[in-house]
Amino acid sequence: MTQLVAPLPQVWRPDRAKVGIVCLIVVESCIFLTFVVAYLFFIGKSSNGPQPADVLDLPPVIINSVALLSSSWTVVLAVRSLERAKHGAFLGWLLCTVLLGGFFVAGTAREWSALMTEDRLFISTNLFGTTFYSLVGLHLLHVVVGLVLLSGILLLGIGGRVRQSHVNAVDMVSWYWHFVDAVWVVVFMTVYVIGR
């Protein structure tokens, strides 16, 4: 090819995994926003059945939230340990993350089972039930997906298959996990603060 006239300019090229994960986060945010908008739109429109203020119990949810949000911290520590090739610490912090996430899922299960057995609130009971179970459930689904990913990494790590060179992939999963935690803040504000 002919010699170029001008020197090559620096071309901006972000990391492809980061671009992918940011795009995924945009997509997920739009799905969540759709459900949050519906939730806000229907606050106070339930004509029958239990109302949020009667049945939503704050203290357990707050403990649950603290567990989930602190798992964001432990996953950061896990990634940092992997960066420095400290495999023991990496596995330890990852295990903490999975346990905290698991605690959150178990807490939600307890909350839901009380709502269904004691308060007789189902998705079909009224608009509160409809919007509550769908929004919180959508978030729960994302927590479960995150837990599956994290547990997979944990199992591979225990088998000695996760090396320092995989840090970028693990980091991308941690970005997703941070997103799931950040969404919980929005869901919590919508359901337990504004909606109540």
Binding site: F41, F42, S47, S124, N126, L127, G129, T130, S134
Partner: peptide, 14 residues
Amino acid sequence: SFGAHFFDTEQGGS
């Protein structure tokens, strides 16, 4: 499928 009421005007949906 699950009897939710998002778009069900009888139950306050829209």
